[in-house]
Design a protein around this nucleic acid. Structure first.
Lengths: 206, 206
DNA sequence: GGGGCAACCTAACGCTTGTTAGGTTGCGGG
DNA sequence: CCCGCAACCTAACAAGCGTTAGGTTGCCCC
């Protein structure tokens, strides 16, 4: 896939690993591939990480850190419900396509990981999910608290699936995609007469 | 994970393989595991399938076949737009949770497969996707034809993500989940005052 | 009642995997 | 000036992988 060196050092390894995990999943990625991508030899990985599993956990953790950071930086600048949700949808999509491969790796590879690895990361995920639950409680009116996690899971499902088909260099911008998803989530397909979103284009098939 | 034998024979192998692929992905699943689950020895797998890759493709194909079957069987019995969409959402969810592990395997493992394997399955996927595009064109009013695939991808993202968190033996039934997803897709969160869906419950976290 | 074939077996192959042991290098600080 | 340590290296390991070769069994059909 990728041919030569990245930046060397611990962070170079981490990033090369994330990219491989996105493309191939945990099990299909070999330590030797990651090493080659980051321009060092396989054994040298173990100077920075105790095991492949630890390296994977580091990637997943970094993925969440990026998400939480992006969530925080939205701030309460836009107070109105709909625009506030839009801003966070845009931020979430940003972490998938613009802030390095870590979040994308987290989203695509999390469920391909061994169960024990997943358990190590769950607490940090919970934190991010709680933020979203709170956001939805303050944004969505009429929904009982009980149903908010479920609503969040559906929204996450839609947003996270975009890494499998959306091409950020295509005709549609991330801004447009975010607007479309937020609007669809809030108002459903009924809003389709009312607004114009430009033309959206998935990259190939899926 | 699973301890002992399934049904033996070709179909037993296929089903055991599907279950493993759901739980672990393609690369992490070994031929020896599949063999043990189906009550035969590893080498005997090769009496039924030429390679692990062929076995995987067979699972993916069967997964789509189940989906297309379920789509067909809905029929035009319910003509009104909203109920018609609901029926197909319900059918799709049914293939994930009720019609064997094949569709679930397809959805979770497709993107963990080597690119060459994916290419072998794409034509059959396209068929299913075309049916949905047609359904959405006839169901969703106001959306331009161009945007229908994108709308479909978002809906698929939401529906397919349910295998990662929904517990069909929990408090919420598949019928309720289908109703919620269809309604959310059509009317967004605005509908939350208007209908009551019972209580939904994801299985643990996620 | 025996030929044929599907369905399984045991044993083994070559290869790749994650990981370790034990260097070598080069730079920054006392 | 040389100590120490971070960052890398080569070489090798045991285990596990997908796969093959070459049986053995037992049922069905003529």
């Amino acid at each position: 896939m990728s041919v030569v060196a990245d930046a060397p050092g611990r962070h170079g390894v981490l990033e090369a690993a994330a990219r491989r995990f996105v493309a191939q999943g945990y099990a299909a990625t070999t330590v030797r591939q990651i090493a080659e991508d980051s321009g060092i030899k396989a054994a040298s990985i173990y100077h920075h990480f105790a095991s492949k599993e630890d390296l994977f956990v580091a990637v997943l953790d970094e993925g969440i850190r990026v998400m939480v950071d992006a969530f925080e930086q939205v701030g309460p600048s836009t107070q109105r419900g709909d625009l506030r949700l839009l801003a966070h949808v845009r931020a979430h999509l940003g972490t998938l396509f613009e802030h390095g491969p870590f979040t994308a790796a987290h989203v695509t590879a999390f469920f391909t990981a061994p169960a024990e690895v997943r358990d190590r990361v769950v607490p940090v995920r919970d934190d991010y999910e709680r933020r979203w639950n709170r956001l939805l409680r303050e944004t969505v009116e009429g929904a009982p608290d009980r149903e908010l996690p479920l609503l969040r899971l559906l929204l996450f499902g839609a947003m996270n699936s975009t890494i499998e088909w959306f091409d950020p260099d295509g005709e549609t911008t991330l801004d447009q995609l975010a607007a479309l998803i937020a609007d669809q989530f809030l108002h459903g397909t009924t809003s389709w007469g009312t607004t114009s979103w430009g033309t959206a284009s998935p990259k190939k098939e899926s």
